[in-house]
Design a protein around this nucleic acid. Structure first.
Lengths: 112, 112
DNA sequence: CCTAAACTTAAACACATGGTTAAATATGAT
DNA sequence: ATCATATTTAACCATGTGTTTAAGTTTAGG
């Protein structure tokens, strides 16, 4: 199995475990957005969104560009790939294990 | 976009955000295991592992089978699929958005 | 019935999280 | 200089997390 950076995975999966952040990530797929505009769909204060964006940034999922008083947040799609690939490998590992004879024998039902 | 259960995604991604739980999930790919054996590789008390297993169970990623004083934990691979599929769709959504003209125009660099 | 083994539950703790409101900061416009 | 706008920082709060140790619980075996 490929080696993954545990801390990176911690951060990325933690980011993904919050619905607001998932929604923000989806939204950013459309293009760069200001904090104000990102906040609009949510029934939540601006500082709350600002905090979520910090979490996203710390995990390397987004980056910021300043322009006047605005801050344009944009995607960093590669970081999500690390989580995706980890998940893919996990599933892959499971599948190969599950088809092995050893596993088959170990998992014969012992009761029902 | 397909509709996903937010609470399920919250739980599954939260499970995945901890390295101990990721390791447990990987390990369970080999086959059912008792708590004792699952705990062995970790430098951590048994109750700590027990709690992680509760989290995994609550998220629907594993299930338990009792046999005497032992508890055999086994995988529930389908639940991980929901997170995997959500991630896949997100990437997919991004990709289609990123190739659209609209996005291209919105994202011309404004400074450098 | 007694004991050992395999867990779980309880209680406690330090720290993180997700939210709030109010105040500070930075920038552009008048 | 003043003001409004966009955003962050600070301070606070309730709740959740990951861990520990100590005390149950359940079950198998002498």
């Amino acid at each position: 199995m490929v080696k993954y950076d545990d801390e990176l995975l911690d951060d990325v999966f933690h980011v993904l475990s919050d619905p607001t952040r998932r929604e923000i990530l989806k939204q950013l797929g459309v293009g760069e957005m200001t904090v104000m505009n990102l906040a609009k769909p949510f029934d939540m204060s601006l500082p709350a969104i600002s905090k979520h964006l910090k979490v996203l940034e710390k995990a390397g999922l987004v980056s910021v560009r300043k322009e006047g008083t605005f801050r344009y947040y944009g995607l960093n799609p590669k970081t999500v790939d690390s989580a995706f690939e980890w998940l893919m490998e996990l599933r892959n590992f499971w599948t190969t294990q599950l088809t092995s004879l050893e596993h088959f024998l170990d998992n014969q039902p012992k009761e029902k």
